[in-house]
Design a protein around this nucleic acid. Sequence first.
DNA 1: TGTGACATGTAATATGTTACATGATTGA
DNA 2: TCAATCATGTAACATATTACATGTCACA
Lengths: 195, 195
Amino acid sequence: MPDDPKRRGPTRAAELTELEGCVLGVVWDQGPCTAYSIRRVFASSPSPHWTGSAGAIYPLVRRLRTRGLLESGDHPAGPDRGQTCRLTPRGRRALRSWLAPPFPDWAVGVPVDPLRTRLRFLAALSPAGRARFLGEAERKLREHIAEVRRDYRRRLAESDRFDWLMARGALRMLRARLDWLREVSLELKKDPNHR
Amino acid sequence: MPDDPKRRGPTRAAELTELEGCVLGVVWDQGPCTAYSIRRVFASSPSPHWTGSAGAIYPLVRRLRTRGLLESGDHPAGPDRGQTCRLTPRGRRALRSWLAPPFPDWAVGVPVDPLRTRLRFLAALSPAGRARFLGEAERKLREHIAEVRRDYRRRLAESDRFDWLMARGALRMLRARLDWLREVSLELKKDPNHR
DNA sequence: TGTGACATGTAATATGTTACATGATTGA
DNA sequence: TCAATCATGTAACATATTACATGTCACA
C-alpha cells in the first residue's frame, strides 16, 4: 500500500486531538472547573460522539496539565476535594490554534454518516427489507429532529449566540439527511428490484 | 456520574462494529477477495474516516474468520500468496442484521462535524479571527465539494445505483454545511463584536 | 541485478470505553 | 443510619493508527 494516503499524524507535540481541543474549549467557556464538570458537559451534550467517560477525561486533563496547557487551582469546597483547572496562556494559544485555520483536510471532508454507510450495502437486503430500512430511518430521523428542536428550545435561555448557531447547523444537517432519504425512497420506488 | 448515559456496548457476541460491518459489506460486494483488496477499498474511498490501515484490517479479517463470518479460499495466484475470504451464511446474516433496522440511536443522531465542533468555541477568537475562520472554511468546503463531484463523475461508469445515491447524500450534506457557514457569516456580520 | 510497486503482516503506541473501587454528602 | 447520588479516580480491554519488517513480482 502507498502507506500514506490519509495519514492523520504523527501528532506534533503542540497539536491537539479533537477531544483535547474540546476540553480546552469547555474550560475556556466555563472558567475554572473540575474534571467532573467537564465530563458533565460531554455527557449532557446532544451529540453522542463522546461519552465523557471517566477513563477518557481524567487522564486527558492530567495530560493537558503536564503539557502546561491547564493549571490547577483549589476546589472552592475545600482543597481535599480535588482540583479545578483553568487555562494557562499557553493553553489559550493552543486552543486558538486548534480552532483556527488552517483546517486539516478531514475536518472539511464529508462528515461520517452511519446511515449513508449502511445504504452503500442496501442491495444486500430484499426489496421489502430496503423499504423497511428507509421507513425506519425516516421515522427515527424525524423523531430525532423533533428532539433536537426541543432540546434547543429548552436551552434557549442559557445559550449564547454560538450555541444557537451550532443548533442551526445540526438541524440543517439532519434536514439534509431527511431530504436525501426521501430522495432515495422515491428512486427505489421507481424500480424496487433493480440491484 | 450516572455512568450510563450513552453507552455503546458491551458489544454482544453477535454484534458488529461499524468497521466490521463495512468489511463484511465490501466482501459481499466484491465476492471472494483478499485482505489487501479490502484495504484498497477503504484507502481509495473519499471518506477519510477509516484509513484501511494494515493494522486494522488484517487482525479484523482474522477476527471475522474466527467468528465464522468469513471463510477462506485459495488465492487465485497460488496458495502461498495468502488467502481470499468470502462470506459464510452466518456472515451474510450478520451483515444483514448490522445493516437493517433497528438502528442504534447514535446512528440516526446528529452526525459529527469538526467544523461545527470548532464553531462552538469561535468566541475565543478575535472578530478578525472569526472572519478568517469562516472564510477559510467556506473556501475549503467549496474546493472539497468540487472534488467530490469530480470523483463521483469519474466513477460514474463503474458505479451502481447505490454508489450514486451515496454520492448524492454526501453532496447534500456538504451543501447543507456550506449554506450553514454562509448563514453564520451573515449572522456575525450583523454584530461582529458580540460575544 | 536491483529498484519500485504490490502484498502480507506484526509491534509499539495512543486513545476511548466499560466496569469497578472508593470516599464524601445528602436526605428519607 | 442507610441508601442514593455526587465525585474522583484506576484497571482491563478493545480498537485503530503509525511505523516497521518481510517477501514477491515486473521490468529496466
